[in-house]
Each structure stands twice: as structure tokens, then as C-alpha cells.
Design a protein around this nucleic acid. Structure first.
Lengths: 258, 258
DNA sequence: CGATTTACACCTAGGTGGAAATGT
DNA sequence: ACATTTCCACCTAGGTGTAAATCG
């Protein structure tokens, strides 16, 4: 009773790179057999907290999307009229678990930009059947908003900096607001998504556009796919979020050990 | 009854730069008449919240220095033995007001590093005379710890990025711990200091060390000088901190309007 | 009726000065 | 005496799921 996992062969495994031959040279820059610049072709990314991701994935991960989380500062009598479309404060929802990777194989002295995007896993819309505790396809997907990308805010930085510690995308926010003005990731509720992670070498050459296709490497971890929802559907997901997210500690009952 | 202001002519005014001639070229890089690289010689910095700084300065600004602010997370029964020299948590004290500047005159496409340091305003040690509500010199300065610098955490970044909005040094922390291990600024309590702000052009040339002296421009604003203390001495300073620092709202009595 | 929005209590995380205790 | 350290209540700032209200 988990959603059907589309074949999605185009996603490949966690790492899309194929083996490359560092010695080979072409057009003045080292190129691997994969046709990628050697600054990225050895890059590899290890997903952090993968056992937690897998635990969620076995239940069918859900991620909350909202228009704007906190409307009014606590204790302030500010009142947004019901007609006000979008209040001033921007805090939509983060992902939990947070997407975090440990990088290796970068050129320590080269500049890289790190970014994420989200691709629909299929062209279906879903609904949750409470009686059977399972997701059912419910028609074709809504028209997708133009796909946004989220740059890691430390970008650009040297390979050495990125590899020094775990790279965390905890500033990434999800929204279902098609008119979002804050650069957040726009997703359709009740649709399934695959997060994707990209390492982009910042090519210092004058005509670097010509090599753009060689200068990035993408990673997607199947255990991080999820259903976007405006409210949790599967109660087991709710309970696992409460048990594992520190900010939800207020909803824990007993304390079966940290 | 304010502390004697040493002549400190070497500090110059808010901006140390002298006029430069952009057209002049030398060694392949534009140099102003000041001998500075043209990437920095037009740089200018406007101190934000200067009226608040001046209000503090008229009373004789004091800044708290501590070894480690918060030792034990609230509600956790962790107990640091009295003999433990330095606990795990690092939060020393910020400055208030926060040092913030609006930059202009940078090359939008060039890389810059922004940083701050603190220089002793004299070689005296002070004590506060409560009966006269004034600071008195009390002997020669303690030996100064090796002067540390604080890089703005967004460094390096393009001139365009730095000029886009106000640059805030709100991550800068002050400590009186001579053995500080967290890269905080080390100051002697009961000594006077002048904050200094530096704009450094990141020179891409191979032998950029040779031009290091041309590639920076420094600013010091006399209204930001202060006395480092472990506890506030002048009650008027305490009251102005409480009135103007949002984190001290808990100590306000009436509310004479925000 | 299912999906979404709103308002809220309850957390994490950490920046304040006060007051009491401790040095020196 | 004076300077410093410690512990604390009280804030700011913002990330949680809940339950009720609302939307369509």
C-alpha cells in the first residue's frame, strides 16, 4: 500500500556519473569519458541521515507545503484582513528530514555552486484512502509551476570549503503558492516529487557557456522522494515526524529515550 | 565627566582614503594618487544607526565582554564543575549597537573581503568612579592579547552583493578569555577600544602579495569607540541598552513608544 | 466531503541585564 | 573594595503539529 514507484529510469542511481579517465584532455580542459569536466566527474555525494530517510520512505514520506506559515508575530495585535492575499512574513515550511550531503572528490581550489531542484515523479494527482491507509492515483497532474531551483546560500565556494563539513539545505522552503515572491520551491500538493542535487563547477573561461553541459554533476537519492501535502495524511508519518524532529518535541508523549 | 579622548590622530576621520585619480595606470592596475588600487580607492562606508551610536558615545559607550555567556542549556541538568575552565558552549557577547555599514563605490564585479579589528585607544587601564559618575585612568594598560580580526562571514563576495544591502557584523562576539578557542575578538576589560572596518579587494593576480598594501581601505568611526567591561558601570548606559536593544525588552518598565 | 487555511500552544535556539556568588 | 563569574527570568526569532474554520 505505498504509491506506485514509477520506473523513472532517467533518474539513474544516487550518482549519475559514469567512470571517467582523468588523463584525457580535450579543448584545453580535462574531460572524463563521461564527457564531464574533470572538476566534477569525480564528485560524489553521500546522503546524511539516510537511515531516517529510509524509515520515512518505507511509510511514504510526506512534506508539508503552505502559502505562509507564521502570519502574525506572537503577542502583536497585527491583524491581516481576510482579503489580504499574502502577508508580509515569508516563512513557508522546511523539509524534514533536511536534505544534507557529505561531498568528496571536488577540486579543493575550484569554485562550485551547489543547488537543488524538484522533479515530478509522475504526471498523477493522488488522494489518500484512510480506510486502506494508502495513496491512490486520482487523475492527471495539475499544471506544474515553472520549476524553481534553490541555490545553497554559501554558493559559490571552493571545493575545499564544501568538503570540509556536511552541506545542509536547511534554508530551503516549500510552498504551494504559485505566485510566491520569495524564491521558495513551488510544488503542487498531492503530487509526488524527487529532490535533485547538483554540483556546478564555476568555469572561469571566457566562453564558459559553451561548456555548461560539461560542468555540472547531478545526484538524486530515491529514498528522498516524497508526497507534497497541505496536511499530513498517514498518521504514521505524523508520529515519525513528532518523534524525530526536535521542533515537534511538544507533541511527544512518553520519552522512549533520545 | 566623560573619558579623556586621546588625540589618536593616526586614526584619521571616518574614511582614511585620500582623493585618487582613476585615470592613472601603473603596473597594469589602476592606482589612485593615494597609492591604492582603484578597486578600493573609491570605496566609501556610511555608518548605520549613527544617531544611536552618538547617543551612546555621549554617555561613554560600554560593551560587555565575557568568557562564555550561556553555560548550560535551560532545563537540562548538565552541571559544569566549578573547576571546568571553559564549557562547551561558546556564546560570548555581541556588540550593541551592532556595527553596520552601507557601502558604495566598490567595483560590482570584483571580489572583496570585509573584516573588522579593534585597536586600543590608549595604553591606560580605567576604573569607574561611581561618586562622580565618571571614568578615571588607573594605571597602564594590561598586556594586550594578540589582535584578532573578524571576517564578515559572507566574505568573499562581489562588490555588487556587498552594496546591495546593509552589511551587518552581528555575528561578531567579544570575549575577555585570553585563551579563546572560537575565534572571537579578545579585549581587556576596563580598556578603551576603537572598532575598525576594512574593505579588502581580492586581487586575482599571481603575485598579489606584492600589492597587498594597495588593495585595502580602512574606516574608523570615532562614535563607535567604547569601554570594554564585564558589568555595566554607568547606569545611564544600562538604561539606554535596555531601551534600545530588543533582547532586553524584559527589563523595560513603562512603554514610552517604540 | 476532501483539501486548505488559520490561529495557536509548545518547542528549539540564543541574546538581554539583574542579582547573588565568587574571586583578587 | 572592586572586578568577575554564574545562574536566572525574560525576551526575540522562528520551526512544529493540532484543531477549528474555511474553501470549493
Amino acid at each position: 500500500p505505498t504509491p506506485s514507484h514509477p520506473s523513472a529510469a532517467f533518474l539513474g542511481g544516487p550518482s549519475e556519473g559514469s567512470p571517467c579517465v582523468p588523463g584525457l584532455r580535450w579543448a584545453g580542459e580535462g574531460l572524463g569519458a563521461s564527457g564531464k569536466n574533470h572538476r566534477v566527474c569525480h564528485a560524489s555525494a553521500r546522503l546524511e541521515m539516510s537511515s531516517l530517510w529510509e524509515e520515512f520512505n518505507r511509510l511514504g514520506t510526506e512534506m508539508i507545503v503552505t502559502k505562509a506559515g507564521r502570519l502574525v508575530p506572537k503577542g502583536h495585535g497585527v491583524c491581516w484582513g481576510r482579503g489580504t492575499p499574502f502577508p508580509l512574513l515569508s516563512p513557508c515550511r522546511r523539509m524534514f528530514p533536511t536534505f544534507q550531503v557529505k561531498l568528496s572528490g571536488l577540486d579543493p581550489l575550484a569554485d562550485y555552486v551547489l543547488l537543488m531542484d524538484f522533479i515530478p515523479l509522475d504526471d498523477k494527482r493522488y488522494r489518500y484512502a484512510f480506510h486502506s491507509s494508502s495513496w491512490l492515483a486520482a487523475g492527471r497532474a495539475e499544471p506544474a509551476a515553472p520549476g524553481r531551483i534553490h541555490f545553497h546560500p554559501d554558493s559559490p565556494a571552493k571545493g575545499a570549503q564544501w568538503m570540509r563539513q556536511i552541506v545542509s539545505f536547511d534554508k530551503l522552503k516549500l510552498t504551494n503558492n504559485l505566485l510566491d515572491d520569495n524564491g521558495h520551491i513551488i510544488l503542487n500538493s498531492m503530487h509526488r516529487y524527487q529532490p535533485r542535487f547538483h554540483v556546478v563547477f564555476v568555469d572561469p573561461r571566457r566562453d564558459s557557456e559553451r561548456f555548461a553541459h560539461q560542468n555540472f554533476k547531478s545526484f538524486s537519492f530515491p529514498e528522498t522522494q516524497f508526497m507534497a501535502v497541505t496536511a499530513y495524511q498517514n498518521h504514521r508519518i505524523t508520529q515519525l515526524k513528532i518523534a524525530s524532529n526536535p521542533f515537534a518535541k511538544g507533541f511527544r508523549d512518553g520519552d522512549p529515550e533520545p
